[in-house]
Amino acid sequence: MGITEDLADALARDAIAAAERLGDDTVISEVSDELGASSTTVQEAFLTAVRVRLAEQRARRHLDERLRRGPSA
Rank of each mutant, 00 (worst) to 15 (best):
G2P: 05
G2H: 08
I3P: 01
I3F: 07
T4R: 05
E5K: 05
D6I: 10
D6Y: 11
D6S: 12
L7M: 07
A8N: 05
D9P: 03
D9W: 00
D9L: 06
A10V: 00
A10I: 06
A10Y: 00
L11M: 02
A12C: 03
R13V: 05
R13K: 03
R13H: 05
A15E: 02
A15N: 00
I16G: 01
I16K: 00
I16W: 02
A17I: 00
A17R: 05
A17L: 06
A17T: 00
A18W: 06
A18V: 01
A19Y: 04
E20K: 12
E20Q: 09
E20G: 07
E20R: 08
R21Y: 10
R21W: 06
L22Y: 10
L22F: 10
L22K: 11
L22D: 13
G23A: 02
G23E: 05
G23N: 02
D24E: 07
D24F: 02
D24P: 02
D25G: 15
D25T: 11
D25E: 15
T26V: 03
V27F: 04
V27L: 03
V27W: 01
I28G: 06
I28N: 09
I28R: 09
I28M: 04
S29H: 13
S29T: 10
S29A: 14
E30D: 14
E30V: 14
E30H: 13
V31F: 07
S32A: 15
D33R: 12
D33W: 09
E34H: 08
E34C: 12
G36K: 07
G36Y: 03
A37H: 07
S38F: 13
S39E: 01
S39H: 01
T40K: 14
T40L: 15
T40Y: 13
T41A: 13
V42P: 02
V42Y: 04
V42L: 10
Q43D: 15
Q43C: 08
E44F: 12
A45S: 03
F46G: 04
F46L: 01
F46H: 07
F46R: 04
L47T: 09
T48G: 07
T48H: 15
A49Y: 05
V50N: 00
V50M: 05
R51W: 13
R51D: 14
R51Q: 09
L54R: 12
L54W: 00
L54P: 03
A55E: 15
A55R: 15
Q57Y: 10
Q57C: 09
Q57V: 09
Q57G: 14
R58D: 07
A59E: 04
A59K: 01
A59Y: 01
R60M: 10
R60I: 06
R60P: 02
R60S: 07
R61V: 07
R61N: 05
R61D: 08
R61A: 15
H62D: 11
H62E: 14
L63C: 02
D64L: 15
D64F: 15
E65V: 11
E65D: 14
R66F: 15
R66C: 14
R66G: 10
L67S: 11
R68D: 09
R68Y: 08
R69K: 11
G70F: 03
P71E: 01
S72Q: 11
S72Y: 11
S72K: 10
